[in-house]
């Protein structure tokens, strides 16, 4: 019981880390555009844009 809880917590943490870092960004992109007609970006092209957008965020002092 306790082990299952710990495992679940770890899984949530891992999912959060992947989402925060953008590790799963392409999977989310595919999921969002599933069923759309237009051509999807390849993994490589997607990440070029992704990094560009991420870098536009200001970084404070």
């Amino acid at each position: 019981m306790r082990l299952a809880l710990a495992l679940r917590a770890l899984r949530v943490l891992w999912a959060g880390l992947r989402c925060w870092s953008g590790d799963d960004a392409y999977e989310r992109y595919l999921a969002q555009h599933r069923g759309h007609q237009h051509a999807l970006l390849s993994r490589r092209d997607f990440y070029r844009d992704y990094f560009d957008r991420r870098a536009k965020r200001p970084r404070c002092c």
């Binding site: 959060g16 989402c19 925060w20 989310r28 992109y29 969002q32 555009h33 844009d49 957008r53 965020r57 200001p58 970084r59 404070c60 002092c61």
Partner: peptide, 23 residues
């Protein structure tokens, strides 16, 4: 899916904190 993306509370917290906290 690019600029506007609904994101979980703690993930946004992580983004925000990483952006505001520096030297």
């Amino acid at each position: 899916g690019h600029d506007y993306v609904p994101t979980g509370k703690w993930v946004v917290f992580g983004h925000h904190f990483a952006a505001i906290a520096g030297a």
